[in-house]
Design a protein around this nucleic acid. Structure first.
Lengths: 135, 135
DNA sequence: TGTTTATCCTAGTAGATAAATAGGGTAATA
DNA sequence: TATTACCCTATTTATCTACTAGGATAAACA
């Protein structure tokens, strides 16, 4: 299951992709349109900005703009920023690798190969889809 | 990410599939072999039993046996018992459907179609794999 | 029949995470 | 210089995770 954070983030990016490009959209406008708590959304957009998926402008007429073309924002990158690893176990994660502390070694782990299959299947779908596909 | 519960459950089922069929295996033996907390594993196997994936025998010489051939225990069924829905959002779950409480309606939700794609991709891999594939 | 063996069942708990909420700080624009 | 709108930190409430504790129950065997 997705956390709300990721779900809201995807919806917000989709909303931004539907607006006229280059014109800042206020958080409050997105929050209202997508039925998201304003303050919560604020923190989500901030994370997306820090990870260079969004650009912001302060002051009057300010707001958020997509940092790149919707086509160039993969859903994998969004997922990794908001949800974390795409893999189901840390020991097969490409971007967040960690040894599983219950496993003696990865070669003898009975679920390791299956976990790689699931990861690759999900990578394929998340890497090949972009924010443009949500519009 | 998988919870430990699901990971341990998969490992235990894989371990059982490797043993001589029809002969009960004690929890303690599985726990030791797979490096799992005994009491925690106890509760996991109990859930698998209640969902008819395992059979148990009490008393001396007792233990757990696979309820069906390893080929007939899909990893989807294991996942659903221990982890819950395979879908990423409740509104596209086949077995655990629930309306998303932040969405006005599913038709206008910008991520709905993508969520269905992810679900189908995961269903395909989890339904077509069985405990036999973990051996 | 009584003891051992092993599962069954209920309850509790420390720590982490989720999903916000509160409240003020900072920068840009008019 | 006042307003607008993002920036940042801290706190809260509820739920979940991963165990742990301790006994009840049932089967086998001497």
């Amino acid at each position: 299951m997705l956390t709300r954070k990721t779900k809201y983030g995807l919806k917000a990016l989709s909303f931004l992709a539907k607006q006229e490009p280059g014109i800042p959209v206020q958080i409050s406008k997105i929050a209202e349109a997508e039925n998201i708590s304003l303050k919560f959304l604020e923190s989500i957009l901030l994370m997306l900005k820090k990870n260079e998926l969004l650009i912001s402008k302060k002051g009057k007429g300010g707001g958020y703009i997509l940092a790149k073309s919707p086509n160039d924002i993969s859903l994998a990158s969004v997922y990794r920023v908001l949800e974390g690893p795409i893999a189901l176990v840390p020991c097969v994660s490409l971007n967040f690798y960690q040894k599983c502390d219950d496993c003696k070694d990865e070669e003898t782990c009975s679920i390791h190969d299956f976990m790689i299959e699931v990861r690759d299947s999900n990578l394929k779908i998340f890497e090949n889809k972009s924010v443009a596909d949500l519009v």
